[in-house]
Amino acid sequence: MKRIHLIIGAMIVLGIGLIIQASGDMSTYGTFQEAQHTGKKVKIVGTLARDKEMKYNPEVDANFFSFYLTDENGETQEVIYHKEKPRDFELSEKIVLTGQMHDGTFRATDILLKCPSKYKDEELKMKS
């Protein structure tokens, strides 16, 4: 057994360990129910509940934005995001939230918007 082989072997073992650890960081998409149940941080995919009120009044608090999101189970829940209202928020097709329940509302720490792409938009316009 050569020294280098030992080192490579050790690195492979370490690598597998690290990959297992990295896998532990991977998340899954959850629901409000799970967030409520576990109290842990989760990712939730959903759509904006357009019939409910959306609040962002920077004059009062530039770090308070609230809206309602309907998750994949169809549950609608108020979401508070202590940051500005993201641009083109209303245009989103889908919203991916990261966050957790706190004091009865879902507190988002990150919001990712899926907007219809410019290309698709143009195509629709042309075909109609």
């Binding site: 920077p58 004059e59 530039a62 770090n63 202590h82 940051k83 500005e84 706190h102 507190r107 720490t109």
Partner: peptide, 15 residues
């Protein structure tokens, strides 16, 4: 008031 939220990259706007 905000628990761990206070440590997140939130609340970073000034009016």
């Amino acid at each position: 008031d905000f628990g761990s939220l206070a440590d997140e990259s939130l609340f970073d706007n000034v009016y």
